[in-house]
Amino acid sequence: MSEFIDALMNHAFLQYAMLTGVLASIACGIVGTYVVTRRITYIGGGIAHSILGGMGVAYFLSATYKWNNLHPLYGALVAAILAAVVIGLISLRTREREDTVISSLWAVGMAVGILFISRTPGYNQDLMSYLFGNILMVTSSDLWLIIGLDILVAIIGVLFYNQLTAVCFDEEFARVRGLNVSFYYLLLLCLTALTVVILVTVVGVVMVIALLTLPVAVAGHFTRTMWGTMILATILSMIFVVIGLAVSYGPNLPAGATIILIAGLVYLIVAVGAGIFRYGREF
């Protein structure tokens, strides 16, 4: 552990990683709470995987046409918003089964990403870091983008708290109260998209759902309000990321996977503990 603290003092890349994780946790706690209570984590997963398409295209274009400013994260951003809007509009306006649409986008997005990355000249190490994340590779320009998205997500998530909570709790009632429920649903999906982009830098495409849901799932055992869940989930997510980074640093383990394992382990303990507690009270 002292080795990690020493390294943290001396290496900018570790400081960026730490800052990324802490900032990502804010969006994660706020939006994750909406996503879990509205029961749309599967949409989060679909958006996360379809992001690979956007990253692949951006990666291909930047390498092939030397568009050096086209960072894969911009591609991710476009793909995420596009996926969110497509899923939202299809589920609101058409009679397609929503889960079928999500599954298709999930797989098609990945297929597009894999195709473009495979046609990109040069060394293709990046595919792995998109899939499984590489928080230690975050640069200062990535960090600015993440800060910007984080602020945007936090402001919208807090400003529309009453409306989004009402739509998550009881959509029909919210509609009768005159809320534009479709608008808020699309807004929620777009917030999810932005949050997923932020989280992809931490744990990669494949493990985003875990970071989006596990802190909220743990927090849900200890709070009885939405905002309480948001705050606790944010703190928990920060703890998971920091501990995951610290634990993985010494033995050189993949940071993203370590973070997720710690989060999963804590959830397991809390869920089992709560079950035993309930069982004990009933008998």
Partner: peptide, 21 residues
């Protein structure tokens, strides 16, 4: 029946939803 019995919300916040709009 369509409400989620596990939704994290307290009584006052449920009632306040009626003030929306």
């Amino acid at each position: 029946a369509h409400l989620d019995p596990q939704f994290p919300i307290n009584v006052l916040d449920v009632v306040l939803m009626g003030r929306l709009g």
